[in-house]
Design a protein around this nucleic acid. Structure first.
Length: 901
RNA sequence: GGGAGAUUAGCUCAGCUGGUUCAGAGCAUCUGCCUUACAAGCAGAGGGUCACUGGUUCGAACCCAGUAUCUCCCACCA
């Protein structure tokens, strides 16, 4: 039989994924005999394609799920996709545009037809890609947030919250995305620091309460520039600073602080809006800050939240001068039809020409932009649907505060708390078509009813209006759809049909889920709201642990993005390095919450690791067994067994604390260093020599255990080797093999310590070989001056084999012409007659001696410090005394060696 | 503007409630090896005043205060 020298992933990955599916290993169902373990996937956008972030996120989920499955739990990983209302609609609009079709020219039904067609064609590609990664989802459970059942769940929840009085409809200041043509929630707004311009505009004062010249000069003092400008001397002006001059047409007042001495003469006055000439009152409010700008604030209730509140307080009208797309409407009177930014340029020019622009200043400001479209957000008064959050937030905060839900890493707890404590009502309506339409139906009189469907609505409407003649055609359904997150916040319940059938076996068994793996960006959008929904609808948190991944960045620390083109194609990577290599590569350096600086070297390292494992397997396959041979490797076997079980305990601890990178690294070192570099080298028979049956059996068992430990990280190669290693029955896959349990090995600690000593001797000899330029196989002998002869006896075979020694002997004094090294208080000699430079050797020893003396002195000093002896714990004291004794011994041997040279 | 976290070898990170390591790991680097499992490899080595300044303590990377730099979150001063 010949086995390829390098592991070839392409050959085996498709095969095993298919077999696992055929065997139904990923399928989960309520089973009272087993402990449930469930995870719901953060549903990717239905039209999305796999990117590096998904790779990281889903690898982590798969590791958790596969391990749970091996632990004998009923592991259930529910996959699915999100309809991603605004993102998908934007894509469909863009696609139609390419075809020359404008969204405006379509009816709602026509548009949705296109959208569904597109979803059917391209939707779910991402799920197929996840299979390439090895994701062990229960594909029979695949859900889509806009499928009929989940839509029904959304509508039921809407009805319920509305009935509870938590959902209301009202005119509020919302974040308007002019490009998307919809309102968005507070969380969908991103603040960007920018340099903005502050325009100082002149408003002419009319009807001032007191138009005494003194008052005029007082105002002039406040605005020194007025003096130098050729303004009509008989008129009084008020300068107002604004960053948005195009909104002056929507002004309804100018506000000043009543305590501002510069403006007392204007109390009760009116001013004229520049260019427009409309008169508006000067109002007084302490909200206006005296220091900022000119101390005079234009009040534009339709386009600024603060102004809106001022307007309410002072009973001012609202003039909305913007269209949905951000252009000015006829109420503006000027610049009608121009985009807000074009209008700004126009008005600045015109104001300047009219000498109404006092000055323009640069200042640092924040720009609110839309997360989705990037457009500058317009605060806008509009009629929307809202969900009151206070009632939902309280228990959701408590659940995290009490650690009923643990966030990993815990630093996110602070973030979560801050958000929850300041949460605003959630604007849940969107002026889009792709999504769940708000189930509110308007009666001819303008009132509305909320119902699951039109028929129900009609019934309610007839009752409400006491008009039994009312027809379906008299009702008009709300045009808006719900925010995407209004469906995804129900995900952990709705995927188990927990709304349709709240007491079904599935939801009772799998809910609450165990772990959630997601990105910190959506902690508020999604995680927080799922906790709210879970508590509101099942009185139970939706999950116990939230593992927050980092962002995948390139080697320069930039976020990976399509625009930058700095993201490798995950499928190419898998094709090139194998899914196992990519998975381990991504997990090598990504502790929870830390960004992953992606470097192809990581994936190479992962690939190399698969190859290392492959070759360990190859080695064992090449061995011939001679049944008559006695067991020759008891020492090696007992040691590796002890090592394995100690490591197993460490591993479980890492997993339990969600330290995935540490868990992987622990196995990596166990396999590479302990198993390959040491164990296999110890038991490996000489070239073409046979192996004894017992050693082979142990070795195979060890390898099987390692395969199990590796399986969650590297599912494909482990399954392949697992089946190559032995004949397996129909259900005997490593995929469902029992996760090894850590056992305490009697005397294990001592076994490990003794082997460590033996290996130090090996390293000492190898080091001499390197230093002296001797080949790895040149026969050498070793002489030891030791009291612990049993160590050398017990490990004689191992030391000789690994250090390539022909003989180890005990001596009283240093043999002539030998190089020495000291380890564990014992001195070892490698006789190298005629091959060493005695002078250099002497210098080396003297240097070592000097260091040892310095070390001894420092320990002595510590021990002669009364305060230390008085205060230090007994163990610490003993440790120091031991150090002193060791140092003394080392000094003595070094001196003897020097003498013998 | 408010808050949180970080600063340990060239890089990415461990280092639990101060005392077996005042320093670990992987990668990278250097040296020597194609030693029939693996050059995607083997053996060995070098490399850090634990950001800075003070303080507490017999003793601090670890506790306290301040300084600097970075990252993230939140925020309605035009």
């Amino acid at each position: 039989m010949s086995i390829a020298k390098t592991y070839n992933p392409a050959d085996v990955e498709t095969k095993w994924y298919q077999r696992w599916q055929e065997e139904g290993f990923f399928k989960a169902k309520a089973n009272q005999l087993k402990t449930p373990y469930s995870v719901v996937i953060p549903p990717p956008n239905v039209t999305g394609v796999l990117h590096m972030g998904h790779m990281l996120n889903n690898t982590i989920q798969d590791v958790l799920v596969r391990r749970a499955r091996m632990q004998g739990k009923e592991a259930c990983w529910v996959p699915g996709t999100d309809h991603a209302s605004i993102a998908t609609e934007a894509k469909v609009v863009a696609l139609l545009k390419e075809k020359g079709i404008e969204k405006k020219s379509l009816t709602r039904e026509q548009f949705l037809e296109y959208a569904w067609e597109w979803k059917e064609k391209y939707g779910g590609i991402i799920l197929e890609q996840l299979k390439k990664l090895g994701a062990s989802c229960d594909w029979d459970r695949t859900r889509f947030t806009m499928e009929p059942e989940l839509t029904e769940a959304v509508l039921r929840v809407f009805l319920d919250l509305h009935q509870k009085g938590l959902i209301y409809r009202g005119i509020r200041m919302v974040n308007w995305d002019p490009q998307g043509g919809t309102a968005v929630s507070d969380e969908e707004v991103i603040a960007k620091d920018t340099m903005a311009k502050m325009y100082h505009l002149r408003y002419e004062v009319v009807g001032a309460a007191s138009s005494q010249p003194q008052a005029a000069s007082a105002a002039a003092e406040g605005n020194s520039q007025n003096e130098s400008l050729p303004l009509a001397a008989d008129r009084l002006w008020l300068t107002v600073a604004t960053s948005r001059p195009e909104t002056i047409m929507a002004d309804v007042a100018v506000a000043v602080n009543p305590n501002d001495p510069r403006y007392t003469h204007l109390h009760g006055a009116k001013v004229r809006i520049p260019l427009l000439g409309r008169e508006i009152p000067v109002i007084l409010d302490e909200y206006v800050s005296i220091e900022f700008g000119t101390g005079a604030l234009k009040v534009t209730p339709a386009h600024d939240l603060n102004d809106y509140e001022l307007g309410l307080k002072h009973n001012l009208p609202v003039i909305d001068i913007l269209n949905n797309d951000g252009s000015l409407n006829e109420k503006a009177e000027l610049y009608v039809g121009q985009d807000r930014f074009a209008a700004r340029r126009s008005i600045v020019k015109d104001l300047d020409a009219a000498n109404l622009l006092d000055k323009v200043e640069e200042y640092a400001s924040v720009l609110q932009t839309s997360e989705r479209t990037g457009a500058v957000i317009e605060p806008r008064l509009s009629l929307q649907w809202f969900l009151k959050m206070e009632h939902l937030a309280k228990p959701a905060l408590a659940a995290v505060e009490s650690d009923e839900i643990k966030l990993h890493p815990p630093k996110f707890k602070n973030m979560y708390r801050a958000w929850m404590e300041n949460v605003h009502d959630w604007c849940i309506s969107r002026q889009l078509w792709w999504g769940q339409r708000i189930p509110a139906y308007y009666l001819p009189d303008g009132s509305y009813v909320v119902a699951l469907n039109a028929e129900e609505a009609l019934k309610l409407a007839r009752e409400k209006s006491s008009n039994p003649e009312l027809q379906l055609t008299d009702l008009r359904q709300d045009e808006d759809v719900l925010d995407t997150w209004f469906s995804s916040w129900l995900w952990p319940i709705s995927v188990f049909d927990g709304f349709k059938d709240p007491d079904n076996a599935d939801v009772n068994y799998f809910y609450p889920t165990n772990d959630l793996v997601t990105a910190p960006e959506i902690l508020f959008f999604w995680v927080a709201r799922m906790i709210m929904a879970g508590l509101e609808y099942r009185r139970e948190v939706p999950f116990r642990n939230v593992y927050l991944t980092g962002i995948v960045r390139d080697d320069q620390g930039r976020k990976m993005s399509k625009q930058l083109g700095n993201s490798p194609d995950p499928l190419d990577l898998i094709a090139q390095y194998g899914a196992d290599g990519v998975r381990t590569g991504m997990l090598f350096s990504s502790p929870a919450g830390n960004d992953l600086l992606y470097d192809v070297k990581l994936v190479e390292q992962g690939r190399n690791f698969t190859n290392k494992l492959w070759n360990a397997f190859r080695l064992t396959q090449g061995w011939e067994v001679d049944a008559s041979l006695p067991f020759a490797n008891a020492r090696a076997v007992e040691w590796f067994s002890a090592k394995l079980h100690t490591t197993l305990a460490e591993l479980d601890e890492h997993f339990d604390k969600f330290r995935m990178s540490d868990a992987l690294m622990t196995i990596y070192k166990l396999v590479w260093d302990d198993f390959c570099s040491f164990y296999l080298e110890m038991v490996k028979p000489a070239y073409q020599a046979p192996i004894d049956p017992e050693t082979l059996q142990y070795t195979t068992n060890f390898l099987e255990t390692l395969l199990k430990l590796l399986h969650p990280f590297m599912p494909f190669i482990t399954e392949e080797i697992w089946h190559e290693l032995a004949e397996r029955g129909p259900k005997e896959y490593v995929c469902v093999a029992a996760w090894p349990k850590a056992q305490s090995v009697s005397g294990g600690v001592e076994l490990l310590a003794r082997m460590e000593k033996a290996l130090e001797i090996v390293a000492g000899v190898r080091n001499i070989r390197n230093q002296k330029g001797l080949g790895p196989n040149k026969p050498l002998t070793l002489a030891a001056k030791t009291d612990d002869a049993t160590l050398l006896q017990d490990y004689d075979g191992i030391i000789r084999k690994l250090a390539a020694l022909s003989e180890i002997s005990l001596v009283e004094t240093a043999p002539a012409a030998s190089v020495s090294f000291v380890t564990g208080g014992t001195e070892y000699f490698v006789p190298l007659e005629g091959q060493i430079d005695l002078g250099a050797e002497k210098v080396r020893l003297e240097k070592e001696l000097e260091y040892a003396i310095g070390f001894r002195d420092s320990v002595q000093k510590k021990l002669s410090n009364e305060k230390f002896v008085l205060n230090a714990k007994l163990e610490v004291l003993e440790r120091e005394q031991q150090k002193l004794a060791d140092a003394e011994a080392k000094i003595a041997t070094l001196q003897q060696s020097l003498n013998s040279l």
